[in-house]
Amino acid sequence: MSYDDDEVRWEVMTAFVRLGLAQGEKVILFPDPWLPEAEVLARLDFTGRSTATARERGQLLLSSMRALIRPDLRFTPERQIGRLRSETARAADEGFTGLRTFIDMRWVPDLDADVRVMMHRETHADALFDGRPYSEICAYDRRWFGREVLHAMDRAHPRSLLERLGSLRTVRGGDGSVRFVGEADSAARRPFTTALELALSGSTGARRLMVDLTQLHFLSVACATALIRLADRAAGHDLVEVRCDRVQARTLLRLGAATVPRLRTTEVVRPC
């Protein structure tokens, strides 16, 4: 994830922590090293004391990159990955279902680490996850990292989180397809419609467009209606294929998708 609003960081961190605790995982936080520990604890414990209880029983730990790589003073990918493997094994030995970490990447300027070395780690860490009950969020403060680094890291990670619940993200594929992520509610109707218009305009040469809705958590009637209307008007296209789940397909069908010959829905089962 990336952020330039501290509240976004807190929201994602606390949600990630609480989900891990609820699933019986061990959670280790590597917060912004310039933040006072008291502030981090106050944020975690806000609205409930479950996190305090988790700390007491060793399920939730606060740490730092300096502590993780100790006794080494200089960061190396091998040292960090090796320690995280050890912590994952320790979590299993302690009876937890897995390990998850939240790593605020401001440890990089704190340790005066080489950004290129950090980027190498981020793009060569697959073995850390293979066959292991381990997950992590790497949080990049956009006020501290350059655009090139942020763009490279966005592409390197298998998932890039939305900053807030209720957001809508549009992703254009190399084949001209368009994928929507997040929530296409009524408030998002204009950006949803604009993204579809641009995708249709850019795919007239191929005369077909694939629209992927499978990563939407919510599809409003307003956005579904806009999709059907634009497909009906897309005279330059032979096919507008919509990949969707069963609920989305039913919504489109009830709103008249079957009356648009060039519009075809393909149901996709979401992975568990």
Rank of each mutant, 00 (worst) to 15 (best):
M1L: 15
Y3I: 08
D4I: 08
V8L: 15
W10I: 12
E11R: 15
V12A: 11
F16Q: 01
L19M: 14
L21Y: 11
K26D: 06
F30G: 00
W34Q: 13
W34L: 13
L35E: 15
A38W: 13
V40R: 05
R43V: 12
R43K: 14
L44G: 04
L44V: 06
D45A: 14
F46P: 01
T47K: 08
T47E: 14
S50R: 13
A54R: 10
R55P: 04
G58V: 06
L60M: 11
L62E: 10
S63L: 07
S64G: 10
M65Q: 10
I69A: 05
R70S: 15
D72L: 11
D72P: 05
T76S: 12
P77E: 00
P77V: 00
G82D: 05
R83Q: 13
R83G: 02
R83I: 10
L84R: 05
R85F: 08
E87T: 01
T88C: 06
T88R: 01
A89S: 11
A92M: 14
A92S: 09
D93I: 02
E94C: 06
E94V: 10
G95P: 04
F96P: 02
F96A: 03
L99P: 01
R100I: 03
R100W: 01
D104C: 12
W107P: 00
V108N: 00
D114R: 02
V117M: 03
M119N: 08
R121C: 02
E122M: 01
T123S: 10
D126E: 04
F129C: 00
R132W: 03
R132L: 15
R132S: 12
R132T: 11
P133W: 00
P133C: 03
Y134S: 00
R143T: 09
F145W: 14
F145L: 01
G146P: 02
R147K: 13
V149K: 01
A156M: 12
P158S: 14
P158T: 03
R159A: 12
S160T: 15
S160I: 15
L161A: 08
E163C: 07
L165Q: 15
S167G: 14
L168N: 06
L168Y: 05
T170I: 14
V171R: 15
R172Q: 14
R172E: 12
G174P: 10
G176P: 05
V178A: 07
V178T: 11
R179D: 07
R179N: 09
E183I: 00
A184Q: 04
S186L: 09
A187N: 05
A188S: 09
R190W: 05
P191H: 12
T194C: 10
L196E: 08
A199Q: 07
A199G: 13
S201F: 14
G205L: 14
G205C: 04
L209P: 00
V211G: 10
D212C: 09
T214G: 03
Q215A: 14
H217W: 09
A222K: 08
A224L: 11
T225D: 12
L227I: 10
R229V: 08
R229S: 07
D232L: 07
R233F: 03
G236A: 13
H237R: 08
D238V: 11
L239D: 10
V240K: 02
V242Y: 03
R243V: 06
D245P: 08
R246H: 14
T251D: 07
L252V: 06
L252D: 08
G256C: 07
G256S: 11
T266Q: 15
E267T: 15
V269I: 13
